[in-house]
Design a protein around this nucleic acid. Structure first.
Length: 254
DNA sequence: CCAGACGTTGTT
DNA sequence: GTCTGG
DNA sequence: CCAGACGTTGTT
DNA sequence: GTCTGG
């Protein structure tokens, strides 16, 4: 799963900057970034932050979107708020089958550039948040689905969800779920697969080309450490230090 | 057929 | 809009 | 997902 | 133990 992320301005803009179109970057800074919650040192999906996503419609120039996909059939704002806490993630195995995701899976895929994400580990009846990031400190590219929903009161509402897959060894351990159902992790793309994720498909027979991209990311490329609380009264909020290592003396992890 | 849901996570 | 449960 | 509430009365 | 809110 993936319910907590860090998304700095630098990470979010990495894709827009890679081609060296500085006027585009300037436009993003002036016109889009003020409508976002950036920089996000930590945000929970349940707070439905506004972020930049790169869609298949314009892969180099991002749009502002809210985390928590609103399916096309949602009719009003009340129904929307019942739905969007349940569509923060989308199971990769079923995105082409579920009514909430199938249209977006076929026609509206996107990338979300983040610094890293947070997961909770359970030990001795307590909960310990971990921050997970790439060993090389480069941004993590997540696979997403996005959508434009017509809010009858307020116009077009752009939202997205993060696709998940089975967890690798490291994330299974952080989740320390010993059995039965396989733990989950977000779908992290590589330089090759991120372009394929945005590649349009027209026929149902091409769905497998997208499904083939859904696999867990090698744990050898990831690093991690514990951080201070991300929930409840001890939560420090969206401050820069929130992703810094915070050692819990009582926690034994290894 | 109609009514009602439509979704995710893990159970150290 | 489309699928599932009764 | 985790943290925190989990109830009643009448009304600032 | 289980539901709700964020």
């Amino acid at each position: 799963m993936c319910y907590d992320v860090k998304a700095s301005l630098e990470a979010q803009l990495k894709r827009a900057k890679r081609l060296g179109d500085w006027s585009a970057v300037e436009e993003i800074m002036e016109r889009l970034v003020p409508d976002t919650d950036l920089p996000i040192h930590h945000a929970s999906g349940f707070s439905h932050p506004e972020m930049l996503i790169y869609t298949d419609k314009d892969p180099e120039f991002p749009v502002v979107a809210t985390w928590g996909l609103i399916p096309h059939w949602v009719s009003d704002e009340e129904q929307m708020k019942k739905t969007w806490n349940n569509t923060l993630n989308a199971r990769g195995e079923t995105i082409f089958k579920k009514p909430s995701f199938k249209q977006a899976a076929k026609n509206n895929r996107c990338l979300i550039y983040i610094d890293g994400f947070y997961e909770h580990h359970h030990y001795n009846k307590a909960t310990y948040p971990f921050y997970i990031y790439r060993k090389d400190k480069e941004p993590i590219v997540l696979a997403g689905l996005w959508n434009e929903w017509k809010n009858p009161d307020k116009g077009i509402f752009t939202s997205f969800t993060i696709v998940t897959t089975v967890a690798n060894g490291l994330l299974s351990k952080i989740h320390n779920n010993p059995k039965l159902k396989v733990p989950r992790m977000p779908l992290i793309l590589t330089e090759e697969t991120e372009e394929k994720w945005l590649n349009p498909i027209t026929e149902d027979s091409e769905i497998y080309q997208i499904e083939n991209l859904i696999e867990s990311y090698p744990e050898s490329l990831l690093s991690y450490h514990t951080v201070s609380r991300l929930r409840g009264k001890e939560y420090l909020g969206n401050i820069e230090e929130i992703s810094n290592e915070f050692v819990y003396e009582e926690l034994v992890f290894e």
